[in-house]
Amino acid sequence: MRLTVNGEAHEVAATTLAELLAALDYEGDWLATAVNSDLVHKANRAEFRLSDGDRIEILSPMQGG
């Protein structure tokens, strides 16, 4: 399945968002995720099924004003 993660193209075997995070070595409870511009709650990542062409954003806390 081809996905775009934080603006970069990826070819992955993962079928859920939780599997994708693990496959790409993202871990930690400080991450926020969105698929196709909509939030996917932390608690829903395990059952959230990805589709070919999905755009995923993985964000974390940063300095801000």
Partner: peptide, 22 residues
């Protein structure tokens, strides 16, 4: 204090370090 959200690198822990400081 104000904070923001930005893209995290794969395998990166920048967010974790900042978040634990805050």
């Amino acid at each position: 204090v104000t904070v923001s959200l930005r893209r995290e690198m794969a395998g990166g822990r920048a967010g974790e370090k900042f978040w634990s400081l805050i």
